[in-house]
Design a protein around this nucleic acid. Structure first.
Lengths: 342, 342
DNA sequence: TCTCAGTATTGAATCGTTTCAAAAGACTAT
DNA sequence: ATAGTCTTTTGAAACGATTCAATACTGAGA
């Protein structure tokens, strides 16, 4: 079914009775062509069903009009929104966006970046799995424009758009403390993920002023609903006295999983016995079984801003100066952390 | 920072002291090259940091190793999962997947498909906004392999992977009827979306046997949480007697929005006064403020299967016969439709 | 009619791979 | 040594769009 004889500019030129270069001009510099000629050429294009071959165009141009985005977890609505923000802005700017999902796996991340290199992408947006420094240096060495999203680069290495995770973690923990909670638990992981580590760091800072407060770190290997549910069941298995009275989940998916496990059959009162706060404020936090307090991040704005920085770097390679945009997260209080009735 | 002098096979050949064709063979047919030579070439590749230019490769090959996917709404977790299923399978098969989001807008759909054509993609997966027939014929005419996802094509036009939406709609309505509900409402739209129309069709079938049952169709222009909330507020504005006693929402996002509006401040008891059932059974249905009954679709399997059919069509162009895979949806009952206490 | 300036068109060269017929090398058997 | 096989290497041609210097038009003014 796939006969491989798509018409080329050659065919169009022949049919329209003009030169090959004229066809190209009709496509790219129509103001340099007499309107009569334009019409002739367009007629031929329509008649043949000609579609420009992007591979040839790119080959000549040396780089593509496509940018890549690698996210940590595409099933997390936070990254979904981030991608949407980037995609919309990209399309507006005449770029297209190809999305890769690393699933927090360095191997997959690498695979996508290799692919992007081979495609000579105009640039890439990366939310890196591991330490960003060496990765960025390597990619830049290969001539790729890189912008880090949801991560911070050292100094003037490259542009980055992030959210202050330490501050977000501090805000979450402070809120729990203000609600009178004293036996906190932090759920999230792996700690090698910078975002997780920093949120924990912020929480530790908040707690450090209180002598009577404990912060128990419960590590997970993934940040999914399933992982949250597993930890929830661990907590259920603990004797009452050893259970935390508040949980700070490193993202909303974990928090939702915790809710599923804890609230099922009313085994645990939330927030009565255990208060829960999540992170990201995804759409579903508000509609959770107990409406979920969370730390809101402006996901779409992050994506759009990152793309803006990347486009600036691409267009003004020489004058471009690397910038670091840092958004501030925002505490959103809902029922899951309010009104302790115990 | 983006010096445009990436090394080419030429450079590699020169450095390794071999011919250009030999380098190509090392990359593509290593078994035809003496192992000593392979090592020489690989050393040169490493030394120069050579990365193959995919545009040139594609130009020569005539088509790419990439497949495109256009979904109706990338922020809907159902499509997120579907994309993941397709992506995983694609990577396994040595293809990469580029994702486009039409947002139920034919113009955007068209834009992505044009892009995919220009890139001479090996094939595309489309969840079409409008009538699939003409679109498919047109794309095939241009030499693209097409597989419809979450949609059905007439006869032997092309492969398709879908879910029986009529049966799903019937199951949802039947369940509500069995719970003793009589004043049903269907929320969803636009009805030009085939999935929505068929779910409604199924519901009408289920209702048609009952003389005392009404089915009120409340159309929306989008299938988002926000649209659901808006309809919920419309319902709140109705006098009690005119309110439905059960709502079938055409997807879970709408259902979640309805819950937000209705349950807020306990204005309406769910399921006491109004039962609600959604569609898709996304992860968040289970954790909704009232755990949401839904119709489950095997999203990842749909994506993976679609890609499998596409790859088969690509690889065995001549022997390939179009197939239609139809999954059966499954009723998942949770609190939002159980135990009417009125 | 001829020149000049401006506009419109031409087409060969180019991008970096892959392909493939032909040439070169390696080896065996005579 | 020589012919005959088989393996390895070679390098020009091709893919299809863009570029740009060269050429061909056009019309105004002398």
């Amino acid at each position: 079914m796939a006969a491989n004889n798509r018409p080329s500019v050659q065919d169009v030129a022949r049919l329209a009775g003009v030169a090959i270069g004229t066809v190209s001009n009709v496509l790219n510099n129509p103001d340099k062509v007499r309107s009569e000629t334009i019409e002739k050429v367009n007629a031929a294009i329509a008649q043949l069903g000609f579609v420009r071959n992007d591979a040839a165009r790119q080959l000549k141009a040396g780089k593509s009009q496509t940018v890549g985005l690698v996210v940590l977890d595409s099933t997390n609505p936070f990254f979904g929104q981030l991608a949407r923000g980037a995609e919309d802005f990209a399309m507006e700017q005449g770029y297209s966006l190809i999305l890769g999902n690393s699933g927090n796996d360095e191997l997959r991340e690498r695979k996508y970046l290799n692919l992007f290199e081979q495609q000579r992408m105009a640039g890439v947006l990366v939310s890196p799995v591991g330490e960003p420094g060496p990765l960025v240096t390597e990619l830049q060495g290969k001539g790729l424009n890189v912008v880090l999203v949801d991560a911070q680069a050292e100094e003037a290495l490259c542009c980055s758009v992030g959210v202050d995770d330490v501050s977000g973690g501090r805000a979450a923990a402070n809120h729990l403390l203000q609600q009178g909670r004293r036996r906190l638990a932090f759920v999230g992981g792996p700690l090698s993920t910078k975002q997780v580590a920093e949120r924990l760091h912020g929480a530790k800072e908040a707690v450090s002023g209180y002598a009577d407060v404990t912060l128990n770190v419960m590590q997970t290997t993934a940040m999914t609903v399933l992982a949250g549910r597993a930890i929830g069941e661990e907590i259920l298995a603990l004797p009452n006295a050893q259970r935390p009275d508040a949980i700070f989940a490193a993202n909303d998916l974990l928090a939702v999983g915790l809710l599923q496990a804890l609230v099922y059959k009313n085994q645990v009162q939330v927030p009565g016995e255990i208060a829960i706060i999540g992170y990201d404020d995804i759409d579903f936090a508000e509609t959770a079984i107990v409406p979920l307090s969370s730390i809101r991040q402006p996901a779409e704005a992050i994506g759009a801003t990152a793309l803006q920085l990347l486009v600036d770097e691409i267009d003004n390679t020489t004058t471009h100066a690397h910038r670091h945009v840092m958004f501030q997260p925002e505490l959103v209080v809902r029922a899951s952390t309010l009104a302790p009735t115990n």
